[in-house]
């Protein structure tokens, strides 16, 4: 028995090559990009995934550590910064930093970009089954599609919304004409009532499997991230489905999630992490992500490498007017979190 134990112990020992731990969104980097980086640095990249910023923050608060790089959204960068979990960047080791578009620098969460390197962005919007919406005569570019019973009556059981407190509230708040960052309890309650009125028509709260549900045709309208909709659209086409998946930014405005690479202070490989950041700032590598998942790209040098059907998609690269209607979410303090927690529980229960 001891011999067996020794064998297993030996097997479980970490590999020799340096390992970069990346805590990333699910499917948020191309395998090819990873492979190229591994070849260049003679190291290994290990990824863990999350599907919600709150989940990532909670796991870190719950003691997850050892991640070199994380890819949080703006408000989560703010939370990580305020809780002193981030390591400052050494810009001298990021020669390609100048590739970034000016409008994505100096975000509210990190003025001067002392800690964060913009990586990619997505818009939280509505994905839909084009043929079904057309047949039902429904508009695609408004939150009314998921909140208004007069539309939902035709979509009963065919709608999913994100299983995320902040995102769903933001959609409801925007639809009601408020800011996505509004923290007035009265407005929150109005948003709750809007959600509760619509909820009987929804199939499920869903964090990520709506990609598959849209592709298969079970779900006709999904509240989700632009890159997931891109994936659903590609999957449906590849599977030869008799319908296409479209996506559009609702005209009432939506949430823009700018995800940035940051260095977590429990990471053991800051040098390697800087090399990875700079590698991802090279236009070709950065473009690979947009080509793979259809995410928006804050990198000017990447645009030349991005396939035209993505570069020209207004839901991925919105024009000026639409850009103005997009908002980044800010972090809530713990009292606001508890108020929202109660409202969310109520939403889940009723």
């Amino acid at each position: 028995m001891l011999r067996l134990l020794a064998l297993v112990l030996a097997l479980a020992l970490p590999a020799q090559a340096a390992t970069l731990y990346l805590y990333n969104w699910n499917n948020y980097i191309s395998d090819r990009t990873i492979a190229r980086f591994e070849a260049r640095c003679a190291c290994r990249v290990v990824q863990d995934y999350y599907s919600d910023n709150e989940e990532m923050l909670a796991k870190l608060a719950a003691g997850a550590s050892g991640y070199d790089l994380i890819v949080p959204t703006g408000n989560a960068v703010e939370a990580l910064l305020r809780s002193k979990q981030l390591r400052p960047l050494d810009k001298a080791r990021l020669p390609h930093f100048g590739n970034l578009k000016a409008e994505f620098l100096n975000g509210f969460f990190d003025p001067g970009n002392r800690y964060s390197v913009p990586y990619a962005y997505t818009v939280t919007l509505l994905g839909y089954n084009m043929e079904k919406l057309q047949a039902l005569g429904l508009p695609a570019d408004t939150w009314a599609l998921v909140f208004e019973p007069r539309y939902l009556a035709k979509l009963k059981g065919r709608v999913t919304v994100l299983d995320s407190q902040r995102e769903l509230m933001a959609a409801a708040l925007r639809y009601l004409g408020h800011s996505a960052n509004d923290s007035d309890e009265k407005h929150w309650k109005a948003a709750r009532d809007l959600i509760l009125r619509a909820k009987p028509y929804w199939a499920a709260f869903n964090a990520s499997s709506y990609i598959k549900e849209l592709t298969v045709g079970n779900i006709w309208v999904a509240h989700g991230y632009s890159n997931d909709m891109f994936q659903a659209r590609a999957d449906a086409a590849a599977a030869g489905r008799p319908f296409r998946i479209g996506y559009a930014i609702p005209r009432e405005g939506a949430v823009l999630a700018l995800d940035s690479l940051v260095l977590h202070n429990t990471g053991r490989q800051p040098d390697l992490a800087h090399r990875f950041m700079d590698f991802m700032l090279e236009g070709e590598n950065s473009a690979e992500l947009s080509n793979l998942i259809g995410s928006g790209n804050p990198n000017r040098a990447a645009m030349a490498y991005i396939r035209p059907e993505i570069a020209d998609n207004p839901a991925v690269f919105p024009d000026g007017a639409n850009m103005g209607r997009l908002e980044m979410l800010r972090d809530l303090d713990r009292r606001q979190r508890r108020v929202l927690n109660r409202i969310w529980t109520e939403i889940k229960l009723r």
Partner: peptide
């Protein structure tokens, strides 16, 4: 679990 939740 994560495969069931994310991409089956």
């Amino acid at each position: 679990y994560s495969m069931i939740k994310i991409a089956v």
